[in-house]
């Protein structure tokens, strides 16, 4: 699948933003006054920034409002609705903290659930796609959700929670890679079933429909970077989980000056963000769409 930068940025940034919103909703931390303003601005910049980035890959972004209509069948529609409702609920919750120094606890819990729900709907957009066997399994929502929650814990400074959650997210990511690498083969879809000619003998793509390329090949048969996939996976995992976990462990050993602790925490967040970006790029670049089979490719 073609790794569109807007979609990678969206799922990474808004995943982190909604993770932070969830922790704010749960009261971890529970800032008031100016502190609340800073925390909520950060969370909204990430979540809304990601959502805006996602509209860049639309052919007609001016019609985006129409996407709220089909929640009964479409995960993309559900995602849009869930995101807007989560942002509105958390805006009320944040405004009460900022203006009135009041924590409306049930509203925060609802907002947290909606924030996590938004990331779940994002994951389901990919999981539902049967034509991409690498995505069409339970490891996709597990990976999206654990990364969102771990990122939220890291960004909100819950060191004790962030360390085990980051390890859990790394395990989910590894599981997604292991299951995904065998998914196309296990799906049973081959050029033989695609053409229905398999019973006659070995089928080989002899001549493509056109000498040039087309939308299908550009969108679904993206092979650049696959040869470096293993190295990129190691880099992604190191940046996403390994370095942040070690950095956080340093910060709790004690005896470090406050400045250094803050620097380490900031480095851990930046590293995590870069690692997730790399993993998300691979999520698309490595995904094989079955339509490639018609072209003798994968």
């Amino acid at each position: 699948m073609h790794p569109a930068p807007s979609v990678i940025l969206f799922s990474t940034l808004s995943g982190l933003g909604f993770g932070l919103l969830a922790f704010l909703g749960l009261g971890m931390p529970s800032p008031t006054g100016f502190g609340a303003f800073v925390w909520f601005t950060l969370a909204y910049l990430l979540a809304v920034g990601g959502l805006i980035a996602s509209t860049f890959h639309l052919g007609h972004p001016e019609r985006a409002l129409k996407a709220f209509k089909q929640w009964r069948s479409s995960w993309l529609s559900r995602e849009g609705i869930c995101a807007v409702v989560a942002l509105l609920v958390m805006a009320v919750y944040g405004a009460a903290l900022f203006f009135a120094d009041t924590r409306i606890i049930p509203l925060g819990y609802i907002g947290a659930a909606l924030s996590i729900g938004t990331v779940f709907t994002t994951a389901m957009i990919y999981t539902q796609i049967k034509t991409v066997p690498r995505w069409h399994n339970i490891t996709t929502p597990l990976m999206f959700l654990t990364l969102c929650i771990a990122g939220g814990a890291l960004l909100s400074g819950r060191v004790g929670l962030a360390i085990p959650l980051l390890i859990l997210a790394a395990l989910a990511q590894i599981a997604h890679w292991i299951v995904g690498d065998r998914a196309l083969e296990k799906s049973g879809t081959t050029l033989a079933t695609a053409t229905g000619l398999g019973a006659r003998g070995d089928v080989r793509a002899f001549e493509p429909p056109h000498t040039g390329t087309n939308y299908l090949l550009k969108e679904f048969v993206f092979v650049i970077g696959r040869k470096h996939a293993f190295k990129l996976r190691v880099i992604a995992l190191t940046l996403m989980a390994l370095f942040p976990v070690f950095a956080l462990m340093f910060t709790i050993t004690g005896g470090l000056p406050g400045m250094l602790i803050h620097l380490l925490a900031a480095l851990a967040v930046v590293s995590h963000l870069l690692g997730v970006l790399a993993a998300r790029w691979l999520f698309f670049a490595q995904a094989e769409h079955v339509v490639g089979l018609y072209y003798g490719k994968r």
Partner: peptide, 20 residues
């Protein structure tokens, strides 16, 4: 008139029958 050009339907089609 209602298509926002998100491309998700082409992703969902196994046959490559939809082109943006």
């Amino acid at each position: 008139q209602d298509c926002i050009g998100c491309g998700l339907c082409a992703w969902a089609c196994p046959y490559g029958a939809r082109e943006m």
